[in-house]
Every structure is written in C-alpha cells, then in structure tokens.
Design a protein around this nucleic acid. Sequence first.
RNA 1: GGCGCGGUAGCCAAGUGGUAAGGCAGAGGUCUGCAAAACCUUUAUUCGGGGGUUCGAUUCCCCCCCGCGCCUCCA
Length: 466
Amino acid sequence: MSLRFYNTLTQQLEEFKPLHDNVVRMYTCGPTVYNYAHIGNFRSFVFPDILRRWLRARGYTLDHVMNITDIEDKIIRDSKAAGKSIDEFTSVYTTAFLEDTATLRLERPERIVPATQHIPEMVEAVQHLTERGHTYVSDGSVYYRISTFPEYGKLSHNDFSGIRAGARVDVDEYDKDDARDFVLWKAAKEGEPAWDTPIGKGRPGWHIECSAMAMKYLGDTLDIHTGGVDLTFPHHENEIAQAEGITGKQFVRFWLHAEHLSVDSQKMSKSLGNIYTLRDLKERGFAPEALRYLLASVPYRKKLNFTFDGLKAAATSIERLRNYKLRMETDKFPDGTNAELISRTQAARAAFDAALDDDLNTAGALGTVFEYIRDTNTAMDAGQFPAGNVTDALEFLDRFDSVFDVLKPSARIGGLSDSEVDALIVERTAAKKSRNFGRSDEIRAELAAQGVILEDTKEGVRWKRS
RNA sequence: GGCGCGGUAGCCAAGUGGUAAGGCAGAGGUCUGCAAAACCUUUAUUCGGGGGUUCGAUUCCCCCCCGCGCCUCCA
C-alpha cells in the first residue's frame, strides 16, 4: 500500500506524492512567542516531526518551513506589561522554544522564519491582493474583502453565504464591511510598534505572515501544510484566501491537522491550572522522552487526554524497549541463523511500515514493534534466537527509533562515570560470591540512587542508566 | 444553530463485513540468594443504546444518548 494522508480539504484519505521530484515542500504554523510553549503546543509539533521522519524513511527530501510569530497583539500587550521591547521579550521565548523542541528531539525544519524579518514580503502580498481587487481600506487599515473570494470556506467546510454584508457585525473595534473580512495590515496605533511602508505605517495582520513566508520559500503551491485543528478556521482558511487570491493557483495540496490535547479530560486553561510546560514535567522527574513517546503514540488525528498516569505508562513502555535493545546487544546467543525468525522480522517491518503509511498510524506501528519484541524475547528465553539474527532485529529496532526516537536516554547532569559504576559492580560481585548479600544489596541500592539499575543475568551483571 | 471529531477491557489504544492488536496497571506462576529483566497463564462472549441490511456487523445504513473541538484569540 502507498503512503496516504487524511486531507482536511477533501475530507478524505489520499495517496501522497510530492508535486515536484522527490522534494516535499511543507509548512508548519509555528509558535507565537509570548510565553513558554505547553505540552499541547508540543503535540502539534511532535506530529510534523513524525511526519518528517516518515517522509524521509520513504525516500523523500524535505523542504520544510516553520514560522515564528514574533509580532502580534498578545506579544505587544505582554511585552508592554513586562516593560521590555518586543525583541527583548520575544527572544526569551523563541530561545526557550528552540531549546524545548531540541529536548523533545524534534528535528529542525530546514528553515525557521521570524515574521518580523519578512515585513517587505507581507507588504508586497497585500499590494498584490489590492491589485487584484481583494482589499479595501478602513481607518487606515487594509482588509481582505471576502466576497471577492467565492471559495472561502472550502477548507473548514463552512457555508458563509448566510452571513453577508449588511448583517449586523459585532461591535468590533475595527470597521469591517462583512463579518468574514479580516485585517491584512493594521494601521499604526500610539505606543505600538509599526513599520513605515508603501501601504501605510502599521504592522501585519496575523494571517498574512504565513501566506507570505510560505510562498516566498516554497513557491505558489505547497505539498503539505500542518497545524493544530483550531487553526483550520479562520487562520488556514484565510491563508488560502490570501495565497490563492494572489496566484489563482492551489495554495496547498494536503492540509494536515493535529488534534488537540486535553488534560484530565479538560481543556487546558489558566483558571484550571492545568497548563504544563516541558519544564514543569522535567521538574516532576519525567524524562523528555516519556512525553515525546506519549505525544507520538496516539495517532495525530485523535484527541489525546494527558494524565500523569499516562506519562508514567509511556516511561515504562520506553523501559521495555530499551531493555530489549540492551539484551540484544549484551546477551550471548548460540551460533547460526534462524530463517524463520528472519521472515518474522521482515513481516514485522512490513507491518510497521504499512501502519505509518496509513496516515501515520503510530499506535498500530507500536503494536507491531511490541509484538515482535515479545516473540523474539520468547525465542531468546528458549535459546532459539541465534547470533545470526541479532543484526536483523537491531535494524528493525533502528527503523522504529528513526521515527519515534526514544531509545537513547537523555543526558543526566552529574552522576557516576562508567568506570565508577564498573568498580562498584566488581565489588558487589565479590560480595555476592562470598554470600555477603547485605553488602551486595547495599551497593545495588547505592547505584539505584544514582540512577543506575543492575540486572543479574547468566552472562553476568548488566547495567543501565534509568 | 452550522461544521467537525470521538464513545472498544481499570487506564491508553489498533482494527476489520467472518467472529476483538499492542502498551500500562492488576492477579497467579517460572526464573533468581533476594531483586531486576524476560516469559507463561489470567483480565472485553464483547466493541455507547436501539433498529435495519446481511448467512454473518464492533466494522455498512437509520435514529437516539453521551463527551469534545471550531464557528472571536488559541497548537
């Protein structure tokens, strides 16, 4: 079966192939940097990471752009409150965001582009829209006249014909002709940052930045555009109106939207106090891989309910995977090769690939991995797993980890060096030999306190960092 | 009201017109000085409820109930 994704635009599972060559041109709506990103945000970013990795596994090259929204109402409000310049204010959160994404092992898109460095492109986009009769000016601000774009609503599948000009539009601070119209360029206000441009002094509306930057780097038609479901309307709908209003060509072939994450079955909100950041989870002693695993394990189009029990379960699952790899790397296996096991590995890998090909069914893919692990563990226990099969098994595990990326433990600060650990193990083995179990258990506990777990096996002591 | 998503064991969750993957947790067992790891057995006669189509439906159709999201800023 071929690679296919669910396209919000067509509401169907569609076979995916890039428009040109082997390169996937992809855009992801990035963060607005007015605070630390929370785990819900990261779900929306783990998804394109898994997508990237799988596209690459399928032989494609990526040209992936993600924006940083560093000029916007909340930023202006909060930076003022903090008594900082916009740049001072946003740079803190931009840096934190990039740190967090690295901690979560999210691959860097080929380009990360800040909005404030693309003002000329946005102005130009607005000018093009004006040339094509899609805009009007009100109180010095430029608006998109949606009635000039009949296809408006095609992404969110909303029929807007009911709310037309003349309908009483809310008491908005802006003077719009039609409820659907949105601002492209906001006229400068006292005390707010503004750029002096041919379309007036002001700043860009939120929606124009994505269209302008996406088209600048990726051309008129993108293969994939990702974002959280909440962005479908109005943001992505507006992106389409802007881009297609300018080019007359299809802006995006595949719209992929990540479902939201809730916490204890509730929406994250300040009033509920259930907004967690990556930093919060680390303070509670959770490894970042656990969050990465949890966020990746539920297919991206399914709502994910975050709980600490779920996070613990994710951490335990990772342990199982790591134990398996460790066993594969350290156990002694009988000579020879088991042909049946080779075909078993091939079947597992095919099932793994098929699951991810199917709209990134990560839960299904994980199922194939664990099934395979149980089967081969059983074979090992029975002494029927020969040395000649190890490479094969490890390759499958590598393929898994090239997408999920959770096997390598995150570096710990401090702790014992390998040689210190080895020295204590030697001492403990001697104590055990003389049946001084008091001392040997003491050493095991000491090491455990340092995050080192011992396992006594037939071949001797095996250890790992927790 | 409009649009959309979902309701599968204690929790997370895959899935197909042919009789329920996987993970976590629980219980019992094997192994072990004890652990750990691993394995075995066990945990949904049943997939929100009711109709219908069918030889057969969790999977298709209809109705209903429940939860959630978007329709204003939001990943």
